[in-house]
Every structure is written in C-alpha cells, then in structure tokens.
C-alpha cells in the first residue's frame, strides 16, 4: 500500500502515458493521434517535474540574496524545470510541424481519417511510379 500512496505521482504519469499511447495506436483520426502524442509528452514532463520536488522546499528563487551560504534544502530542484522548459519548446515545435503536415494532407485528400486516406491511395494506382 505504501508504494501506491507515497509514489502516487508515478501512477498518475503511468495512467496519462497509457492514455496517450492508446490514442496514438488505436484512433484512426490523425488529429486524435496528435492529441495522444501531446498527452504522452505531457506525462513525461510531469514525471520529470515530480522528480524534482522536495518536501518543505519552495520554488527555486533565492529569497535573501545577501546571505552567503544558501541552504539547498529550502529550494526545489531547478534542473528538471530547466530541462522540461526545453522539452516544452520541442513539444510545441513538433506540434506545429505536425499540424502543418495535417493541413497539407487535408488539402490533398479532403479528409483526416487514416482508413479513408489509405483507400484513396489504393484507388489511385500510383500514377507517378513509371
């Protein structure tokens, strides 16, 4: 029981990651796949942020800048925050490029359902191959 209560952050991110993974695998709409990928990345970001938390600590902004020795137990771990800031930027970049690709797919095939696109591709008989 102890590993459920005191490690609840891991269970939360496992559930979120599995929701995203399910959406990426089983949905046939490409936008829903993209949303699943975002949920997956958010789960990883939550995991890293929760690793950096300390009991009895506050956000990593040094309150009294004239104190010579700063007690590191009073401030949270700043490293996961910085790394996840970078990860959020990468996430937004991948999301933007993916949405641009989806717009291009929609312009060409007039649909975003994966099976309909595959049907159109099969009926085209590949005119550009020879």
């Amino acid at each position: 029981m102890d590993f459920i209560i005191s490690k609840f952050n891991y269970w939360i991110y496992i559930v979120l990651m599995m929701i995203g993974f399910y959406a990426m695998i089983s949905k046939s709409n490409l936008v829903k796949k993209l949303v699943g990928m975002n949920i997956f990345q958010t789960a990883i970001i939550l995991f890293f942020i929760s690793i950096g938390s300390k009991k009895g600590a506050t956000i990593p902004i040094i309150q009294d800048s004239h104190v010579d020795a700063v007690n590191s137990a009073l401030y949270m771990n700043p490293l996961p925050h910085v790394l996840m800031l970078t990860a959020i930027v990468v996430m937004v970049s991948t999301f933007g490029v993916a949405v641009a690709l989806l717009i291009m797919i929609y312009r060409k095939y007039k649909t975003l359902e994966e099976d309909e696109i595959l049907q159109i591709l099969r009926n085209e008989k590949w005119p550009n191959t020879h």
Partner: peptide, 27 residues
C-alpha cells in the same frame, strides 16, 4: 529530499547561483 536527483548536481547550482551569476532565479 534524499533522492539522487536532489542530492547530486542541483545543490551546487542552488548554492553557487547567487555568487556566480547574481541572479535570484535559479531556473
């Protein structure tokens, strides 16, 4: 508070950030 990510690298950043960069916000 005694987990590996909270004990190995980050205390050095928190303790030396004011002295080396003069920025209150460690992030």
């Amino acid at each position: 508070t005694d987990s590996p990510p909270n004990t190995h690298v980050s205390p050095r950043y928190i303790e030396k950030s004011i002295e080396e960069t003069a920025t209150p916000n460690v992030v």
